[in-house]
Nucleic acid binder design. Structure first.
Ligand code: FES
Ligand code: FES
Lengths: 155, 155
DNA sequence: GAGTATCCTGACAAAGCTTGTCGACTTCTT
DNA sequence: AAGAAGTCGACAAGCTTTGTCAGGATACTC
């Protein structure tokens, strides 16, 4: 029932990119806006690049930009990249569920599957275009990102 | 997005007790029927006793039985006993959510809350009476519980 | 009341996972 | 050539989960 920190970071990053018009954002800039440690983003962004969600450009004036229209990126897509299966228990996964000793006629599994499906349905039904549209105001509180991402090198 | 093993065990135990008519079941017997290591059940059952879900009797002919009617025990109740908050992320818990740097106007949180609410709604809407009623056949595959709970004492 | 069956409690070690960090490298621009 | 990015893999610390155990307490039986 819990999402990993990297999943959190990734979704925030994509939302940030969705709010930005077209130009690429430097990793450092994304880190600042999302209040994510830069060193972790350095690990998260390439994963999304490999998956074809974002595109990167090197050298000065480089950075990351979306590789698709925000309306084509569902929250489910991102979550699945970093999270394992979305089922709450191993006997209720969609792809080769682990056999559980009580599988034969176990009615609990039905409920776990319902939870799984509800989750998938919600996450799959939301795109980053939706999220960006809903985000009106200044959705980042400057006061709270004072403690900078990579604070200082072992000080 | 994942439920702990102890939660799994606990729900299986309660379902087992719900299927049993009235008489108390020995911990050892529950362990066998649910294919749960007895030593772990020894830790899980008392938790549910303290919570008032089950009742125990000592001595020979002792064991555990439900302390309420199965129709009064929701799956949510049991899950909450062993699982932390049901929200998928710390900024979306119902009780004192942890402030997240992007809280101001973050539209992601809305979705996390929807997931949370959907989960709660599903788990809260199912009682063990429902689960027991739906369970018709021999819902335990004997072949699979061959590897006994507490195999043998350091042999 | 001795003996036995059962539950109770707390402490614990091993294993696994998550988190954040680092250093050395590649690619692009000027 | 120099500098500004992104890329990759390895890793240590910390946390959580999992299962185990030993000794104790209570209730029944004879
Ligand atoms: S099948 Fe795994 S808990 Fe029922
Ligand atoms: S408020 Fe926590 S992710 Fe948006």
């Amino acid at each position: 029932m819990w999402v990993s920190r990297r999943t959190d970071y990734a979704t925030r990053a994509i939302l940030t990119l969705s709010l930005e018009g077209g130009g690429p954002l430097k990793l450092e800039e994304i880190a600042r806006r999302t209040a994510v440690p830069q060193s972790v983003l350095e690990q998260v962004m390439p994963t999304m690049r490999t998956a074809g969600v974002v595109r990167s450009e090197r050298g000065p004036a480089g950075g990351y930009r979306l590789n698709k229209d925000p309306s084509e990126i569902t929250l489910e897509r991102i979550v699945r990249l970093f999270q394992g299966p979305l089922a709450p228990i191993s006997c209720a996964t969609r792809h080769n569920p682990e056999p559980c000793p009580m599988m034969v006629g176990c009615t609990l599994r039905d409920v776990w599957e319902e939870v799984r499906d509800a989750t998938i349905s919600l996450l799959g039904g939301v795109t980053f275009a939706d999220l960006a549209k809903r985000a009106g105001g200044p959705w980042l509180d400057p006061a709270l990102i004072a403690p900078v991402p990579n604070p200082s090198p072992t000080t």
